[in-house]
Structure formats: C-alpha cells, structure tokens
Amino acid sequence: MGNEIFNPYKKFSKNDESQIKEEINVKKSFEEFNLDNLVPFKNQPFKVYSNDEMKELKDSIERIGLQNPIIVRRLENNKYEILAGHNRARAFKELGKEKIPAIIQDVDDDTAQMIMIDTNIVQRQNMTTMERAKAYKLKDEIKKRKRYDIDKVEENLSDEEKEQLASEESRQTFYRYLSLTNLIPEYQAKCDDDSLSVRAGEQLSKLNEQQQRKIYEALGDSKITENKAEELRKLANTFDEFTVDIIKENFNGDKNTIKSSIKFTKKEMEKYFSDFKSIKEIKEYLIRLLEEIDEKSENSPYGEKYY
C-alpha cells in the first residue's frame, strides 16, 4: 500500500471497512477548516487555473468529491496559510461551500515553501515551462540554505509522487530549467507558449540581458531553434560590441542559420578599421582586398599566390 493521503469523500462498500480502518490508522488526520480563515501562500510561482480548468475541477468535486485534502500551516489570529490546494480552496468557495478538509503542517518557512513547490509539481497537469523554472529556482535557493525538513516534505507525497520527482528532476534537467530564469521576459513568454524550446532557451540564457535584447530587437518573433541559439551565443561572444547590425548581417534568415564569422579584438578593430562606420563597410573592404589578391595571383607569370 502506498502513502497516498486518505480521501474523505471516497465511497467504500461494506467489504472495504477493514481497509478503511487500516488506511485511517496510517494516514495523517485531517480537519474541516473555514475557508474565510485561509490565506494564500505569498509569492508562490504557480498560476491560478483558467476558467475551463476551474470548471473541470468543480465538476469533479461535485461528482466524486475532493480527492485529497489541502495542506495548510498555522498562522496567528486563527489564520492558516495554504501550502497545497489554492485551486481546490477557490473551487470550494465558488461552489458555495464554507469549509474544506485540510491537513495541518506546523513547519518553518523553508519547509513550508518546499512542500508548496513539490506538491504542485507532482499534482499540476498543465504546468508551464516558466512555472517549473521558477519553482526550481526557489527550490535551489532553499536547498542552498539547508534548513528545511526533508522528512516533513516527503510525508506529504506518495511513493509514486516521490518517484515522479526523482525521474523529472535529474541534475541536468533541473539546471536546464533553472537557467531559463535568466532569460528576458520576452523569451520567457516564448518558453511558455512553446515557440522557444527549453534547450534553445538554455543557450540564450548564457548571454547577458543586453545581448538578449539585441537579439530580440534584431530577430523579433523569428523562430530560434537550439542550433540557431547556440550560433547566436557564439556570435555574441565573437564581438566586443554586439549590435543589432551585426546580428542582422550575420543572420541568414532564408537558410535559418548563422553565417561564419571572424573575431577581431578591440585593439585590432581600432588599428585597422577605425575609419569604417559599419560591419558592412568592413566586409566590403575585405572582399575588395581579397579580389585584388586573387587578380594579382591569376596575372602572375609564376602562378604565385599573393597571401
């Protein structure tokens, strides 16, 4: 038998009475709490359900009851902070109910936050990319402080949910999502609408805010694949001054690739190209020089290459 929280609304037959008693003995007890005494968790990264999702949840509650009690922790003045179950509490209110089943956890701030994060990760079916990324960022900060009670966190998860967390949060995946929190808002939005993949976002996240904004200004809503993002990152690191013109002149929109580039140091640029006003002028100048060299080579009676 797993560690699933006992469902107070589940219907059992008489033949299940022994099982019910066994489950009640091993499960945490729950109480009915007045909805007016509940307050939301501050700065939690998860969005409220859409109207369609909320309707589906309310229909489910009316049809089969609440499958899991919410989780709260005690505050002052007879108030309780919701750690898990914000949408369930909202659904109960909209259904005109006054109370909701809840489990009390008397825990510190870091443990409370970790319970809030892990229960949402395993229970939400339509979590966006950036919801997960921001949750991982909070989780990373909590882990670094090393003050939370892991046993208190895990007792709110079933064995299946623990396995789910372990499989979804490999070190590589965890830090890949975490990197997305370094993206500018425009690219975070693209991660959420799936027009920018997690891997492509990871590449762009290695650039600073100014470089990302130059790319967005130059390319706008053009699709950026993982390979393209990697080439853009390399291009940004090629130039001491990364500009919109450089991006546009090096970006081949037709082939969806980045053209090859040559890196010049700032000193070399000042020494050889200080009189030029743009990369385009420098390019044209270098091409003319190469053409002159080729012409001299072709006209040489000895077939010499003037390089």
Rank of each mutant, 00 (worst) to 15 (best):
Y136T: 02
Q19V: 15
I64W: 08
L286C: 14
E202Q: 14
K93Y: 11
E160Y: 10
S274V: 10
E230Y: 01
S300T: 04
K234T: 03
E131D: 09
K305S: 09
D59W: 01
T173L: 09
I224Y: 06
G303Q: 00
V153L: 07
A166G: 02
A236D: 02
E249I: 02
N25M: 15
I121E: 04
Y272R: 10
M1R: 06
D151C: 10
D294K: 13
I293A: 09
Y272F: 13
K271S: 04
N25C: 14
S222E: 13
K134L: 13
E32M: 13
A218C: 05
K259H: 02
I279H: 15
K14T: 11
G201L: 08
E217A: 12
R233G: 05
A112H: 00
I258Q: 09
N227L: 05
S274Y: 13
M269D: 07
T243Y: 02
E295I: 05
N252D: 14
S300R: 06
N37D: 08
K14Y: 15
K283H: 15
D106F: 08
T225Y: 06
T128M: 13
Q19P: 14
N182M: 11
Y148Q: 10
D193Y: 03
E202H: 14
K228E: 05
I215T: 09
I121F: 04
F92R: 12
D140W: 14
E160P: 01
A200D: 04
A236L: 03
T238E: 03
K47S: 09
T225Q: 02
I115E: 01
I82P: 03
K214S: 12
K305G: 07
D194A: 04
E53Y: 05
K55G: 07
E4A: 07
K93I: 14
K248W: 00
K234R: 11
K55Y: 06
S195Y: 03
L35C: 05
R147I: 14
S18M: 15
E62M: 10
I258E: 04
V198S: 03
S297L: 06
M269G: 04
N126A: 13
G220L: 01
K99I: 09
T173K: 13
P40C: 01
D109S: 01
Y177G: 10
I279T: 15
E169V: 00
E268A: 11
K10C: 08
F273Q: 06
M116N: 06
E4Q: 11
N78W: 05
Y272L: 10
D108C: 02
Q19E: 15
E141T: 12
Q172W: 05
L180A: 06
I121A: 09
K263I: 00
T128N: 12
M127I: 15
F6P: 02
L138S: 08
E298N: 00
Y136E: 06
E94F: 10
I100A: 10
V153Q: 07
T257N: 12
K234H: 07
Q105H: 03
R233A: 05
P101R: 03
Q44R: 05
K139V: 01
T265S: 11
N126E: 13
K10Q: 12
G201H: 10
E226R: 02
A166W: 02
E141H: 09
E281Y: 14
K248I: 04
I20E: 15
Y216G: 00
E298H: 00
Q44K: 07
I71A: 03
